[in-house]
């Protein structure tokens, strides 16, 4: 039950993009087309799931037993950087078209703050391995949901008459604000 609560609240209630404001750069950068938004979301979900497992292992098997938890920031960022590098090599070998579609945003997942935040929050809340995985998968799916909804709205927005200075990032942020407003309706779903 606890696992389901963590999973659902990571997707809907404490959505990484709309509640914690994480990963805004890819959220605004890759949300022009639904197809690329979907692959970006899945790549992030994939990296998040592995990060949740690896950072949990490092935190519980290396850092805490040796009282080195002040090294969390440095070690997590290095783990994430090398993981993204691995995923990048893997995708380039297995699916070159997907690699082309993600382009520069794939290496940029390293500096996507949502991944780092995931590792830190799981450590801060003292999640068990299963909880950390539920949290990682849920957060990734939440990001995917938000970016796909955004891409769908922006495809329609191309046809709308937006005031000149608000075109681009301005209107995208206002749309995100309205989406965040809608997502606030989910608060109270889980006590």
């Amino acid at each position: 039950m606890e696992l389901v609560a963590i999973f659902v609240s990571a997707i809907l209630i404490n959505n990484f993009v709309l509640y914690y404001f994480l990963g805004i750069c890819p959220f605004l950068g890759v949300s022009k087309k639904i197809s690329s938004a979907l692959s970006m979301g899945l790549a992030v979900t994939f990296v998040m799931t592995i990060t949740a497992v690896v950072s949990w292992a490092i935190n519980h098997w290396i850092l805490i037993p040796h009282k080195l938890d002040y090294l969390q920031i440095v070690s997590f960022i290095l783990v994430i950087a090398s993981l993204v590098q691995l995923v990048e090599m893997f995708i380039r070998k297995m699916s070159p078209p997907l690699y082309q579609a993600l382009g520069i945003y794939l290496p940029l997942i390293t500096t996507n703050c949502s991944i780092m935040f995931l590792a830190l929050l799981a450590a801060l809340r003292n999640y068990s391995l299963a909880e950390a995985v539920a949290f990682g998968v849920g957060s990734g799916l939440g990001f995917t949901l938000a970016i796909i909804l955004m891409a769908g709205i922006r495809e329609q927005l191309d046809l709308a008459d937006v005031p000149e200075p608000l075109k681009g990032a301005g209107i995208a942020l206002i749309v995100a604000g309205i989406m965040a407003l809608a997502f606030m309706g989910f608060i109270g779903m889980i006590k």
């Binding site: 709309l18 509640y19 000149e164 301005g170 209107i171 995100a176 604000g177 606030m184």
Partner: peptide
Amino acid sequence: IMILPPGAFLTLGILLGIALHIER
């Protein structure tokens, strides 16, 4: 609403619009 998450998005979106307008 301004100190809740939606307020952040709305305020920054409008500020970006104003900044671009001044620039033009």
